[in-house]
Design a binder for these strands. Structure first.
Length: 312
RNA sequence: CGCGGAGUAGAGCAGUGGUAGCUCGUCAGGCUCAUAACCUGAAGGUCAGUGGUUCGAUCCCGCUCUCCGCAA
C-alpha cells in the first residue's frame, strides 16, 4: 500500500506531539484531520490559547477538530465521516473505546517510557526522579486500560546525569517523531507483530501518575542524590519548590538545578548554610544539597550567586 | 476587563518630592607561594516609555509596553 492511501487522523495537544505530526506531514503521509484540545484561556492575562498542535495544524492547512467531549455523538459522527484507516495518538488524553476502535487498523499511541514501566501521564519526570539510567519510547495499540496495549516498537534512550526533564523531553520528542513514522510504515506494509505487555519480563513496575504541585515540594529527609534527581526530574516544569530560612529571610523558591554533596553532619535536616557569596546548601539525610539555580516569587530564575547579591 | 508581583549601572537588588546607592562583575594598579582571597582607584544610569500634578518627579497620579507568579 502506498502511504498516500492510508487515511490518518492525528490526535495530540502539547509541544511533544507537534514534531511527530510535522514529520508525517513533511514526509507526505495523508493526514485527513487533527484532533486537539479546545482553546482555553490560560497563561498571563487569561488569554485564549491554542494548543501547540493546533497552531501547527493550522499553519499546515490541516482540518482541526476540538471536541469538548470525546463521546459527543456529533463529534463521533464527524470523526466517522473522515473514514480514517489509522489513528495516531501522541500526548493527548484517554480515549473512549468507541473512538480508538473506529479505524480499520486501529489506533496507536506514542508513550515516553519503556512500557510496561512508567504508565501514566508523566513518564519522563518520574523516570528521572527515580534515578533511572535509561528510559525510552514505546508505540503500542490502544486497549481498555491506559498504557497497557500490545507493543509495536520500543527504543531505549540513555538518561545522562546532566539531563533534566526539559532536555530529556526534547530528546524523546525527536526520537519519538522517527518512531511514529516507522510505526506508521509498519502499518502500511502490514508488517506488525505486536507483543502483549505481560510477555515482557520486568522487575517491579513504576507508575507515572500525573504530578501536582503538592508533590513538587522538596523533602530534605531524603538523600542528596534523591533530592537531586527530584529537582532535575521536575525541571524546568513543573519545578520543585521549597521553603527555608536564610539569614533571617524566609525564602520560598522554585529550584531548577542542584548538586548533591555527600558529607556527614549533625545539623537539623533542612538547615540552610551560605557564605553570602557563592553558595547555598541545605542539610539533608546524608549530606547537603547545593542550590545552583532558583527562582524567587515574582522573579526570574537566577543563579544562586545572583540571588545572594540581591539579598544583601 | 480573573488575582497578584516587578521594570533603577553589564548582573542581582536598595532607596528618596531637591546632584542616585549596595553587592557582584568589568578595567587599571598594589599585595600574595597561592585563590571565586585581600587592598586602592576608575569606567559604567535618559531610574522601561508616555501624559499629568509640582518651583522641581526616579519617587505621586493616568495610560502603554515588557517580564514573573497563581490559576487551567
Amino acid at each position: 500500500m502506498d502511504k498516500k492511501q492510508l487515511r490518518i487522523i492525528y490526535m495530540g495537544t502539547p509541544e511533544f506531539a507537534v514534531l511527530p505530526l510535522q514529520k508525517l506531514v513533511e514526509n507526505g503521509y495523508n493526514i485527513v484531520a487533527v484532533i486537539t484540545m479546545p482553546d482555553k484561556p490560560s497563561g498571563r492575562g487569561h488569554k485564549m490559547q491554542q494548543s501547540a498542535v493546533k497552531q501547527y495544524a493550522l499553519s499546515a492547512g490541516l482540518p482541526v477538530l476540538q471536541p469538548e467531549k470525546l463521546k459527543n455523538p456529533e463529534f463521533l459522527e464527524q470523526l466517522r465521516s473522515y473514514n480514517a484507516d489509522l489513528q495516531i495518538v501522541v500526548a493527548f488524553r484517554m480515549l473512549p473505546e468507541v473512538v480508538w476502535a473506529m479505524p480499520k487498523y486501529g489506533t496507536f499511541n506514542l508513550h515516553a517510557s519503556l512500557l510496561p514501566q512508567y504508565r501514566g501521564a508523566a513518564p519522563i519526570n518520574w523516570a528521572i526522579i527515580n534515578g533511572e539510567k535509561e528510559t525510552g519510547l514505546t508505540t503500542f495499540f490502544l486497549q481498555q486500560e491506559i498504557d497497557t496495549g500490545d507493543i509495536i516498537m520500543q527504543h531505549k534512550i540513555t538518561i545522562e546525569p546532566t539531563d533534566n526533564a526539559g532536555n530529556l523531553h526534547d530528546k524523546l520528542m525527536i526520537e519519538g517523531a522517527e518512531m511514529v513514522i516507522a510505526t506508521t510504515d509498519m502499518v502500511i506494509n502490514q508488517n506488525i507483530t505486536a507483543i502483549p505487555q505481560n510477555q515482557i519480563a520486568t522487575e517491579q513496575l513504576h507508575p507515572a501518575p500525573k504530578i501536582f504541585k503538592e508533590t513538587c515540594q522538596i523533602n530534605y529527609n531524603q538523600t542528596a542524590e534523591q533530592i537531586h534527581n527530584f529537582v532535575r526530574g521536575l525541571s524546568p516544569y513543573p519545578a520543585a519548590w521549597t521553603e527555608f530560612q536564610l539569614n533571617g529571610h524566609s525564602i520560598n523558591a522554585k529550584i531548577f538545578a542542584t548538586e548533591p554533596i555527600i558529607e556527614p553532619h549533625n545539623l537539623t535536616i533542612g538547615t540552610a548554610l551560605t557564605d553570602n557569596k557563592t553558595y547555598i546548601k541545605i542539610a539533608c539525610k546524608d549530606g547537603f544539597i547545593k542550590l545552583l539555580n532558583m527562582q524567587l516569587p515574582s522573579k526570574k530564575p537566577l543563579n544562586v550567586r545572583d540571588v545572594l547579591n540581591g539579598l544583601k
